[in-house]
Design a protein around this nucleic acid. Structure first.
Lengths: 206, 206
DNA sequence: CGATATACGCTACGACTCGTAGCGAAAGAG
DNA sequence: CTCTTTCGCTACGAGTCGTAGCGTATATCG
């Protein structure tokens, strides 16, 4: 399915540059914000020329999207044997990721720009939001296999349940850490999971 | 307490200009975003000279902060007769505020800048976050007075409950409307309130 | 009334950034 | 070796930020 991924002839691209550039982008975004981030500064941090950035990403927006998407791809779904444990593990992972200042500034700056740029918003949805819903889908499937949640009555209900669960989990954690500015302690994660579990079974049943 | 507020001699400032400039800032922010907003454009929209902007606000950041703060001063809390009605009213009010494109871009842009500016973050917390938490506190107190919720066992538990409820409500609504991009319909508000009510009593009791 | 003091609109300016183009050199494929 | 692509470097036009200067308008004070 995947195309041959690039040209066969000519000098190959520096394989290390992509990671260095994306890391430098997140670092600069945390220090300077969206408005303060400059392509020249990112290039200097990554140790490459500015033209190399534009050779790999068409604009500043696309570069930042790629940098944030790469960061969020680290999230994984662990099957720990119970729905409560799985939820707490995912929330803890997400919270740990959002505790890094570079991720905080990157995510919010990206979301802010996405509210005005429909194309960027679509890119964010396709590259960041939709891929993360896999965590909810996987967790629900595991719980259903264990008998903790009833099977879905129809496909449409299952999709709606995934959407609202994802919005609730992601939105609540993001709001606590980025807007309220409070850390996600183990006690808070436990309490939030309790709050989530009760309606969760109701949704699946309804 | 308030100082005489400005000089007594000389030509007074145009009283209408402040409102026109702040409105023009929010309008431009919705259309162009934080990065695309230019002082010259704001000045043209407001019908004033660019120098007038800098005579009243020291920089673009300060101008945007002032514009958003003025917008959020509209938030109020109405005490209806039941916990469900109170929750739905608050959610609907919040959703209505977030449905305006100018508020969407403005709020997220402001939050993004706040992640890297501690002073701005503190101002956002004091001017926006904490006042809204008081809405949750008032709603809980009213529900407890009506016997819909049990009284708090201790102050620390009550504070934790307020925090988690506030983050869940605000975070979920923000995530649905700004990230997922779906409107908060009356049906959705009703369903979300139902979901929130069950665990709400459990947490308050625990 | 005149003198004073401030706000206003307008223009111009230096410094900076975006995104592009051109150059010679480097590094792999055929 | 030849061809192709990437690399770093430099330079450029367009656009923006924030400031400064100018003449003018509008207020208060003596």
């Amino acid at each position: 399915m995947t195309p041959p991924s690039g040209p066969r002839k000519g000098r190959p691209r520096n394989a290390d540059a992509d990671g260095a550039i994306l890391a430098a982008t997140r670092e600069a975004l945390a220090e300077l914000g969206w408005g303060g981030l400059t392509m020249g500064d990112v290039a200097a941090r990554a140790g490459v020329a500015k033209t190399t950035l534009y050779r790999r990403w068409p604009s500043k927006n696309e570069l930042v999207v790629a940098a944030v998407a790469e960061q969020l791809d680290e999230l994984e779904m662990a099957d720990l044997g119970s729905l409560r444990a799985d939820i707490e593990a995912v929330v803890a992972q997400f919270a740990a990721l959002l505790s890094a200042p570079e991720t905080q500034a990157a995510l919010l700056a990206l979301f802010a720009e996405a509210t005005r740029d429909p194309l960027l918003r679509r890119r964010v949805r396709e590259s960041i939001i939709e891929p993360q819903k896999r965590l909810v889908i996987a967790g629900r499937a595991a719980a259903q296999a264990r008998g903790e949640l009833p099977m879905d009555s129809c496909e449409e209900m299952a999709s709606a349940a995934v959407d609202i669960i994802f919005d609730t989990v992601a939105g609540t954690v993001v709001h606590r850490m980025l807007v309220s500015g409070e850390p996600a302690t183990a006690e808070w994660i436990s309490a939030f999971t309790t709050l989530l579990l009760a309606p969760l079974t109701e949704i699946a049943a309804g």
